[in-house]
């Protein structure tokens, strides 16, 4: 098929040019508590910054027509229990979504779950899952300020009455939380997307379109946008039951993805690494 040969050509071009092939990330051991966000700049002074090349996701439609994020700069440190990344990339506009047709800036870090040769870079494969840490500016807003109410998204919107909020003191009692939730379909269906989020979603996937959010999160993320650049600190616990489990001295592989909301990037419209980036965790 024409389309397949086009993808293969793209992959080959990328393999020839991708910095990610050359990049190898070394997580430096530091003497500090990394179990929560640590803003101390000196932690990073010995961690070598690697440049990793990305390209527009070429495998499945819908996909972007241009590569918006060509490269990211990655550093890593660990304290023996927690592994922390600092990822920086250029993005001319800060987007944390909200209104209709707006999308959030985001980044994802992917690890193979099984030991041995890593699965296909395209979000794993059947019986060979990947463990993804997905940070979104939108989710970080939830964590810092709470989930946006309609008045936060549309301050000038006027609404007569939400029936589920109706009360009349002495006459009509308000609905219970459960009953009110029935009017918020995403929540009534238990969709984690519809609740206030932790800044980082942890996800398992076995190929494109199969991602499923994990409930127990052992990770944190904090992105700061300044002068056209995001700096994201993303930390994860090294040993994860049923997930990607790492240990000091052991090698692993990394995959990256970036979304720029200002370019309507969301879901499969993203820039990605087309090959795994090897990583060592310093003893």
């Amino acid at each position: 098929m024409k389309v397949n040969s086009f993808f293969i050509a793209l992959v080959i071009v990328n393999l020839l040019t991708a910095g990610s092939l050359k990049a190898e990330i070394l997580a430096k051991s530091v003497k500090a508590d990394l179990s929560a966000f640590n803003k101390e700049e000196s932690l990073w002074k010995n961690a070598k910054e690697e440049v990793v090349t990305l390209m527009m996701q070429p495998m499945v439609a819908p996909r972007p027509k241009v590569t918006t994020t060509e490269k990211i700069k990655v550093q890593a440190i660990h304290d023996g229990n927690w592994l922390v990344f600092r990822i920086r990339w250029a993005d001319p506009r800060r987007d944390d979504a909200g209104k209709l047709g707006e999308f959030s800036d985001a980044a994802a870090l992917m690890f193979p779950v099984k030991e041995g040769p890593p699965p296909p870079i395209f979000m794993g494969a059947k019986d060979n899952p990947v463990h993804i840490y997905h940070w979104r500016a939108q989710y970080q807003y939830d964590e810092e300020h709470g989930k946006k109410e309609m008045k936060d998204i549309y301050p000038n919107m006027s609404i007569d009455m939400y029936p589920m909020e109706f009360k009349d003191p002495g006459k009509v009692k308000g609905l219970t939380k459960e009953k009110r939730e029935q009017y918020v379909q995403g929540q009534a269906a238990g969709n984690p997307q519809s609740y206030a989020k932790h800044a980082v979603d942890e996800i398992f996937a076995e190929g494109f379109g199969t991602s499923a959010v994990i409930e127990n999160v052992e990770s944190y993320g904090k992105g700061v946008w300044k002068n056209g650049e995001w700096t994201l600190i993303l930390g994860r616990h090294m040993s994860r039951k049923n997930g990607s489990s790492l240990s000091v001295g052991k090698d692993t592989h990394l995959g990256f993805a970036i979304w720029q909301g200002s370019h309507d990037e969301v879901g499969s419209r993203k820039t990605v690494t087309m090959s795994w980036t090897p990583m060592k965790i310093e003893k």
């Binding site: 209104k99 209709l100 309609m150 998204i153 918020v184 379909q185 929540q187 969709n191 997307q193 519809s194």
Partner: peptide, 17 residues
């Protein structure tokens, strides 16, 4: 929302689905 030519899928900014 993008693909439906009749524009009968609608995004809910509150539930985010």
């Amino acid at each position: 929302v993008r693909a439906c030519p009749y524009k009968k899928s609608m995004y809910n900014t509150y539930t985010r689905v």
